[in-house]
Design a protein around this nucleic acid. Sequence first.
RNA 1: GGAAAGAUGUCCGAGUGGUCGAAGGAGAUGGACUCGAAAUCCAUUGUAGGCUUCUAGCUUACCGAGGGUUCGAAUCCCUCUCUUUCCGCCA
Length: 425
Amino acid sequence: MIDTKELKSRYDEIKKNISDRYMNVDLDEIIAIQDERYSIMQETEALRTKRNENAAKMKGKLEQDVRMALIEEGKKIKAELQEKEEKLAELDKTFQEKARTIPNYASPKAPVGKEDKDSLAIKFYGEPTKFSFKAKDHVELGEELDILDFESGAKVSGQKFYYIKNKAVILQMALERYAMDIVLKHGFTPFITPDIAKEEILNGIGFNPRGEESNIYTIEGTGTCLVGTAEITLGGYYSNMILDKKDLPIRMTGLSHCFRREAGGAGQYSKGLYRVHQFSKLEMFIYCLPEESEKAHEEILSIEEEIFQGLEIPYRVVDTATGDLGAPAYRKFDIEAWMPGRGESGEYGEVTSTSNCTDYQARSLNIRYRDDDGKVKFVHMLNGTAVALSRAIVAILENYQNEDGSVSIPKALIPYCGFDRIEKC
RNA sequence: GGAAAGAUGUCCGAGUGGUCGAAGGAGAUGGACUCGAAAUCCAUUGUAGGCUUCUAGCUUACCGAGGGUUCGAAUCCCUCUCUUUCCGCCA
């Protein structure tokens, strides 16, 4: 969340940010709740002071009637205090809930706009793959090659589930290891994280596990959820801790399953592996000093590019428009790989995403460091996809398809796969 | 899953109802001593929040977490989490 002490001093800025992001947050209501909370808080504290003073008077030896009078007084204060404290707790809860909905300040460099098409393509790598034949999409390729099975996925688990079969299994493992090797080379510490996390962690990262539009599966009666990304488990790792400044930046990379409800996400642009309820992903995460976060963001992006350049897949980099930024993000870069089977005759489709969340998550999760001036300050937290296996497989199958329906393996993956081609068996 | 013991400030560690934001020690910082250093001595040394007469003062909360008892809780009670040890079970 943002610093709620600044709601009034940065009022115009916050308001503009909310409107730039096309979000519906009533800042004035939140400030009104905050004011009421402060005033109840003061009344509560005054009563507590009275209670403490009253109790302090009873320390020594006292006449019985004096003591009884003080106890009576104490009981009266206690009753009053209880009432105030209940009210305060209620206000606190409401305030926290509402304040959490205020988005992070967006970078002044992020393009302002409502949706996808307002985002800026800031870089192109390679030319969209051309074929001398009609390109198939990954669904057709995958089913013909008997390496993807959506029908069985739907039968056993439901819509948007799938089985990966045969050489695609090896391909996925190869991709995992290939991306891991690149990330490790850049000094990241590898993790395999839990696939389940507590709601408080989800909230701290900025995911809302509740509500109709939530993309999160909650596990009934446990207070936990299936993670949608290892960003959650990597970001929760240091919650409530004060980090040593000399240990920063901390670079972590985590492999996890990712579960997403994707309610209502159907249609041509979500078909096949592109939008699914479960996939695996290798995620990068950095905790760093505030002054280093923009540089760290560039670093993550460049590793993501290195991974896709190594696969020789054409892509573009997109600087996400304010209206399309997640609430915690200060700035977000997506890599969109060329997908020849997408749309009429190929389109770019998102394969990675990296966000600089500045101190937004750190404030909720209480992750700080001690600065040279002795003060504790919030770290900046960044995340980025190393490789989302399902989407990377979409890009590989569609870009590396051959006229006979077989699929070649990108050069960089051949040593990891042990074969250079997937063909009909 | 069962049993026992434990969880206190940066660390170690005392503290079984009021004199405890918390003894003592270590560490760190500043100062004295010294040519300098060590030793010694003195002082300072948690976090978050609120208010005000805002380079300061006042005040609230925090002793694993959450509840409860009480005029008053680090201290008593309940639940949970974690750690250690033992038993059971298991990949």
